[in-house]
Every structure is written in C-alpha cells, then in structure tokens.
Simulated assay, not measured.
Amino acid sequence: MMNAVITSATINCNSLSPSWTCGDNSPSKLLLGEISAALSRRRTVKVSCGKSSPDDYHSTLKSLNSRGRFPRKSLGQHYMLNSDINDQLASAADVKEGDFVLEIGPGTGSLTNVLINLGATVLAIEKDPHMVDLVSERFAGSDKFKVLQEDFVKCHIRSHMLSILETRRLSHPDSALAKVVSNLPFNISTDVVKLLLPMGDIFSKVVLLLQDEAALRLVEPALRTSEYRPINILINFYSEPEYNFRVPRENFFPQPKVDAAVVTFKLKHPRDYPDVSSTKNFFSLVNSAFNGKRKMLRKSLQHISSSPDIEKALGVAGLPATVSNLSHVLYEVLGSSSLHENLSSF
C-alpha cells in the first residue's frame, strides 16, 4: 500500500506535471478536489502516538506528480495521510538497529523511510514498476534498501529470504530472524497471511495493516462460532495473533470504504508447532471438514479414511458419528488437532 502525506503547501498548479493541469474540465481538478477533501478529513483525525517520522512528503508528492501517478484501484493503492501510523507499525514490530525487515508494497516509501531511520535494512517487494522507480530513486544513496519488482503472492519469497539471511549470517553470526512490516493492499491480505505465517524459521514477527473487518475475522473470533474458518486454524497453528489498533478510513487517500487495523502475528518456530504427524495431512483434513454446508463430517472425510475408522475417531474425540461440518463443537476439536491425531492412529 502506498503512503504519502499531502499538505496544502504541495497543492500548487504550477508544480504539477503537464498531465495534471488545472483546466476546468481536467482530471486534475477532480484530483485536487479529492486532495483538499482528504486534507480536511485529515485535520479532524486524532491518533495517539509518539514522535512523527521526519519524512519529506513534499518531495514524495513532487516525485508522484512528475510521473503523473495516481492511485491504481486494481493494485489496491492508497496514500497514508497520517505519518504517525507508520511509527506505530514500526513500534508494534519493535524495529531496531540491525533488524532486517521485509516490506510488501512500499509505494512512495514513507514507511520504508521510518524503518531505515530506525536502523533496519529493508527488502521491499513492489509490483508497480512506477513505484519501483520512485523508491529506487528515493533511497539510491542508502545501503540499507533493496527493492524487487515482483508480485508478492507469486514470487519465491522463501528463496529470496534464505539467500539474504545466509549472506547476513556470514558477517553477523548472531543476527536475529527477519521481520515483516507492511501496509498491505486489502485485496491480497489473506494470500499474504497464508504465505508468511508458515515461515517461523525466517520471520519472528509479521505486522500488517489490514482491512478492519478482515483483521477481526482473522484474529478475534472465539471458538465455537460460525465465523471460525480454516484460516483461523492456520493462524493459530503458526502464530500468536494480536489485534493492535484500528486505523480510521479518513487516514487514507483516496479514502477506502472501510477502516483498517494493525495486526501483529508473533510467529512460532517450527519446533513449537502443534504435534501432528503430518502438517500437510492435517490441513487437508481441516479443509475437508469445512467443505459442504450441513454435510456430515464422516462423509466429508471419506477420502481420508474409511467410515468405521472415522466414526471411531470421532468417538475418541468426543464427537457423535452424525456431527456436521458446521457443528460449533467441531471448530474447537479441529483447532486443537485432536481429530487428526485420532484418525492418524487408525
């Protein structure tokens, strides 16, 4: 997700690129109207925070203007209007001197700037080639920044990170695991969570800015509710999640239709994962158990084991043979992995 602060000092027709001229019927007139509205909203937002980040937002917007850039809805791009949120993201991850941080979607680099100023080395993954050029130019003089032009959900992030961490450990044998700090485009948040959380051997913390409703579904739902899904089991299997704070939609430009929230996932090391005979088989069972509304579990799992064995395993797990996929008691059993253990014993 891109980040920038737009101030009244930057809204000057003479400073805009030719593609953003100020004619009565030009797109830029609408743009300036949106910026003015965003500024008005921004003044009313109160967020408790610490010291503001010393970010040069004037030059950031000037760079965007020089390229005629505007947020792309298809990429989920929004500018952050409140620089203090970036400070809070870095604080939630406890970023400090010597850390290695992965950032997904650096945009204009305002969060990147905070991370580098704290002494971290940053690897950024950016899909938009225009933003790659922008941040490459902005941090050209820094040896603590590298950006890769890739689609994060399709790139081989494990290979990238293992190569980087192995090189770092040659010169810093005691270097810690890496961290992830990112303002994510909302449309890829679930994919990113699924990709990152099983990497407890690479990352210690994953701090993300997500859509608020999604954050609540991922982190807060209690067991035995209809909101519980396979993704919740995956999250609790691989991490200890925490909902940090809500970020009102007024903090973004253009303003999204929903609020955002910052969530921290403290990743478990692989040695601390729940004791199951096969992680792959466990999640296969979980996904099968949630497929088919109202379908009896013994039918959903027939491809895993025979009906008598499934019924016996259900009995050992304390479930009736007729339990359905949507039974509330099933969520707790799956979350504790006891059904998988019982099935594996037959």
Results as ranks from 00 to 15, higher is better:
Ile6Val: 14
Pro18Tyr: 01
Ser17Pro: 04
Thr44Phe: 12
Glu341Gln: 14
Leu118Ile: 11
Gly200Ile: 00
Asn232Cys: 13
Gly119Ser: 08
Glu220Cys: 13
Ser189Gly: 08
Thr167Leu: 10
Thr112Pro: 06
Leu210Asp: 02
Leu81Asn: 01
Leu326His: 12
Asn291Thr: 14
Ile157Lys: 00
Val276Ala: 08
Ser28Asp: 06
Lys266Pro: 05
Lys257His: 10
Val206Gln: 02
Met199Glu: 11
Ser278Tyr: 03
Arg67Met: 14
Gly107Asn: 06
Val5His: 04
Thr190Lys: 06
Lys312Tyr: 13
Ser59Leu: 11
Pro274Lys: 02
Leu208Asn: 04
Leu148Tyr: 08
Val193Ile: 15
Leu31Met: 14
Thr322Val: 15
Pro27Gln: 07
Glu240Phe: 10
Phe282Lys: 01
His58Phe: 15
Cys13Pro: 07
Arg67Glu: 09
Glu34Pro: 11
Glu240Leu: 12
Ala140Phe: 10
Leu216Gly: 14
Asp133Ser: 15
Lys266His: 12
Asp94Arg: 07
Glu240Ala: 13
Val5Leu: 10
Asn236Trp: 02
Val5Thr: 09
Phe186Lys: 04
Lys62Met: 14
Ile164His: 05
Arg42Gly: 07
Thr167Tyr: 02
Arg217Phe: 12
Asn291Phe: 11
Leu195Cys: 12
Leu61Met: 15
Ser337Ile: 01
Lys96Val: 13
Asn86Ser: 14
Phe237Cys: 06
Asp212Asn: 15
Arg249Leu: 09
Ser28Cys: 15
Leu148Trp: 05
Ile233Cys: 09
Asn236Cys: 07
Ser74Glu: 13
Leu61Tyr: 09
Ser336Asn: 13
Asn117Ser: 15
Lys312Arg: 15
Val276Leu: 08
Val329Lys: 13
Ala289Tyr: 00
Leu339Val: 07
Ala140Gln: 13
His172Ile: 11
Ser327Gln: 06
Val316Trp: 06
Ile164Lys: 05
Ala140Met: 10
Leu61Asn: 05
Ser63Gln: 11
Glu97Met: 07
Thr112Met: 02
Lys194Tyr: 13
Thr279His: 06
Val329Asp: 15
Cys13Leu: 07
Arg217Pro: 12
Ala289Trp: 00
Lys293Asp: 03
Ile233Trp: 02
Asn3Pro: 07
Lys194Trp: 09
Thr112Ile: 02
Asp191Trp: 01
Ser175Asn: 10
Cys22Thr: 08
Glu126Cys: 06
Pro71Val: 02
Leu195Trp: 04
Arg169Phe: 06
Phe265Gln: 00
Pro54Thr: 02
Leu39Thr: 10
Arg67Val: 03
Ser307Phe: 10
His130Ile: 11
Met296Gln: 13
Ile11Arg: 03
Asn236Lys: 10
Ala178Leu: 01
Thr44Pro: 08
Tyr331Leu: 12
Met1Glu: 05
Glu341His: 11
Arg138Asn: 11
Ser182Arg: 02
Val132Ile: 07
Ser171Arg: 04
Ser8Pro: 06
Asn281Cys: 09
Arg138Tyr: 03
Leu339Cys: 11
Arg298Phe: 10
Glu220Asp: 12
Lys257Cys: 05
Ser182Phe: 03
His156Asp: 14
Ile6Ser: 04
Asn244His: 09
Val286Phe: 07
Leu326Ser: 15
Ser344Arg: 10
Gly119Asp: 07
Glu103His: 01
Asn86Met: 03
Val206Asn: 03
Phe186Val: 12
